[in-house]
Design a protein around this nucleic acid. Structure first.
Lengths: 341, 341
DNA sequence: GTGAAAGCGCTAACAT
DNA sequence: ATGTTAGCGCTTTCAC
């Protein structure tokens, strides 16, 4: 257990004061009129012995941790995992690390998590909030902690957020089916009424109404641990109860996976017996037989915008507070075989 | 920006000393013979005002951050994302948070990452190491920082690790194909010679030799960002160069996805033209047409073992240092349609 | 230009 | 039994 070099050791060795070393290290040499020669000497020695300041001490002193808290529904979900990967890349490039937490869309768990992260004095938050955490988000904002929501937002809380235009995406998806003459188009969604799910449902409803068709909406219970079978069975049941259903729009990627399983078990053919469109794309949808039509999220743009908006809020050098950023990114319908008769 | 309550405020309000509050909060009331009545009074008031100690200050003082660093190849890869999700659940239950980093299997990046995490005084590490980080891992160990490797290990460094029996898994996979009378079985792997890839290759080779068949091994370049096309093309090229190839074992999940794409483009039929087995399973492999046979990783056991071994190392109350844990978990071949003639 | 010193909020050894 | 106090390692103001 070799002892780490401290700033004290550096100062002693160079026979200068601790303050000088610190100032040089933090790029404040110029403004404190420290000679270039000395600054270089310090930098050189620091490099030589590989001195690295203790971030804990630094954070305690400055109040900045350079850590971003990422709260997603489930890090194992391909959509969130992809976003996490992209965010990490951008964050790291700008000197931030990421602490992730999966909320499982559970209000109580999310509240706990936010409380724990606050104790750690995280610099900022990127959150896909479950319902019911308005108070906590407001508290974060009130405390001046930059927070950006994504995927869904909380209508009653004026925060920055980056979401996608699920209404338009679902509308386009439904029209794509209806325009082919399919009539009985069903919308399978979760039990959540969060904004993203409501928007998708709304887009579907608008399309159906525009085409003079009645709605068929079924909510499927979705479990995070283990019990996937339950969801598959529920979708199977729906299929059996609705033999005239010609097409299904699955409101998220998990539902699509369970749905494909249910459809396969019942030996229904896609798209002949039932056409399928998935919200959220997946690498393997392209390779499915038939390939699955998907409403694809602009994950790269989403991740990049998220980190930019957050770091903008974190930028303490700015004079005016940044404007509220409430950004709605466009979705794209990737038409593949599963939705074409 | 409301001011947080400090331990000082608690002490003042209760007219006791800071030390008393701290001791009670850290469960050391008994051993310092603080009266139950006082302890309860402190706890009650702390609860009442919702006081939470500043973890930064606590960490600086105690040297413990209760943060675990998780270094994976790519958090967006389903295998690593799944492991990350499971690890998180266990870690959280035991009071640890997780800082994740994607190494992209890049040596330099991994070194940087380890250095950065060390500055943060992370309590322990769970690492899927790229090649060439022996020095850094040794340094971690020398500094007494619990570190557990997984998925692959570094033969020259005596660490704890949890891996899977890739040799046996690949042997079983190859035999499954050979026993059906398939002869020209190819093994598509990455350019990496890390232990997990070497083991898989070794198992394949042993099976081929046991069946008196020559080896067909092709290494496919694998990119992390963007350039997936390159890998798909390389696999396509392999297929065209080896028209007699009757079966392929893909050495990891990314290769399988690219491989399926390449096979589809060339309109080869699975398993009639070419049988397929994937290392690493995926939810969607079951739903593929035909369903893809996979060598499945015991992800739950892996995650649980990882966290247990790590937290065991973190347990400072133990008298003897824990034994080296070098655990090899069994893999299971999930036979599906893609590998059965 | 440079250095001394006051904390950031907490823990725990030591004193009482 | 409870209180006092010296740090953990760093940043930054202010005096020289």
């Amino acid at each position: 257990m070799k002892k780490r070099t401290l700033i004290h050791d550096i100062a002693k060795h160079l026979e200068v004061s601790i303050a000088t070393v610190s100032l040089v290290l933090n790029g404040k040499a110029k403004e404190h009129r420290i000679s270039d020669a000395l600054a270089t000497r310090v930098l050189k020695y620091v490099e030589e012995v590989g001195y690295k300041p203790n971030q804990l001490a630094k954070s305690l002193r400055t109040g900045k941790t350079h850590v971003i808290g990422l709260l997603v529904e489930d890090i194992a979900n391909p959509f969130f995992a992809t976003v996490a990967g992209l965010i990490e890349r951008h964050a790291l490039a700008r000197g931030y690390h990421i602490l992730y937490c999966s909320t499982e869309n559970d209000t109580a768990k999310a509240k706990d998590l936010i409380a724990m992260l606050q104790d750690r004095h995280i610099d900022g938050y990127i959150i896909a909030p479950p319902a019911g955490v308005e108070k906590e988000i407001e508290a974060l904002l009130r405390n001046g902690i930059p927070t950006v929501l994504f995927d869904r937002y909380l209508p009653s809380v004026p925060t920055d957020y980056i979401v996608v235009d699920g209404e338009a995406g679902a509308y386009e998806a439904a029209c794509h089916l209806l325009d082919q003459g399919l009539k009985h188009v069903a919308f399978l969604t979760t039990e959540s009424d969060q904004t993203q799910m409501a928007a998708r449902l709304g887009g579907y409803a608008r399309a159906m109404q525009a085409h003079g068709q009645p709605l068929t909406v079924q909510r499927i219970p979705l479990a995070f641990e283990g019990d996937k079978e339950h969801s598959v069975v529920a979708i199977g049941q729906f299929l059996e109860d609705n033999p005239t259903c010609e097409a299904i729009i699955f409101a998220n990627n998990s539902l699509t996976v369970y749905g494909l399983e249910a459809i396969a078990r019942l030996k229904r053919r896609i798209p002949q017996d039932v056409a399928v469109i998935s919200f959220d794309d997946n690498d393997l949808f392209r390779l499915h037989s038939p390939p699955i039509t998907a409403v694809a999220q602009p994950v790269e743009a989403l991740a990049e915008t998220l980190i930019n908006v957050l770091l903008d809020g974190l930028d303490t050098t700015r004079l005016t507070p940044p404007d509220r950023q409430q950004i709605v990114l466009p979705l794209s319908l990737v038409v593949r075989g599963s939705s074409v008769r």
